[in-house]
Amino acid sequence: MAYDAELAERVRALMPAEVTEQKMFGALAFMVNGNMACAVGPDDLLVRTGRSAYEAAIAAGAEPMTMGERTMSGYVNVAADLVAGDALADWVRRGIATAQSLPPKPPK
């Protein structure tokens, strides 16, 4: 399963200079200080919201992120129609803010 290259380019343009990219689980993850901010999948955007902003993201239209039968608290999936136009910047900012609020991870 490949990620959406066009969406990845749009996300890349919104990322700060210190971002790194990592392919994982068929997606392209964008890492800030070693912490995932968001990831582009084949037809959606995964955003790290943290637990404190999770409910607000759900209220804004995102879906809970699930792996198998487990719901991953602090992460949401945002459908492609919710990241059209300028809306993408808001979702990316949420992920960046969450990643920047975490302690940096040492480089591998």
Rank of each mutant, 00 (worst) to 15 (best):
D4W: 09
Q22V: 11
G95S: 11
L82W: 07
V19F: 07
P104Q: 03
V76Q: 04
E18P: 03
Q100C: 07
Y3R: 09
N33W: 00
M36E: 05
T98P: 00
V47R: 00
V78S: 04
A17F: 04
A62V: 02
K108R: 15
R70E: 09
A2Y: 11
P107H: 09
L88F: 05
A60H: 03
T98E: 09
D81T: 11
W91D: 02
G26N: 10
Y75V: 02
D4Q: 10
L7G: 08
M65F: 15
N77V: 13
V76C: 05
S101N: 12
S101P: 06
G85N: 06
R10S: 11
M1Q: 11
V92Q: 02
G61H: 11
G85E: 07
D43L: 05
Y3H: 14
R70W: 08
Y3C: 05
V92K: 06
I96W: 05
T49R: 01
E18S: 06
E55C: 05
D43S: 12
W91V: 12
A57F: 04
E69H: 13
G26R: 07
E55R: 14
P64S: 08
P64D: 02
S52C: 04
A53F: 12
A84Y: 01
M67E: 13
A79W: 11
E21C: 05
D43M: 01
Y3V: 07
A13L: 09
G50C: 03
E18F: 05
V11M: 01
A53E: 13
L102W: 01
R10C: 08
A84C: 04
P107E: 03
F30G: 00
G26L: 07
E21Q: 10
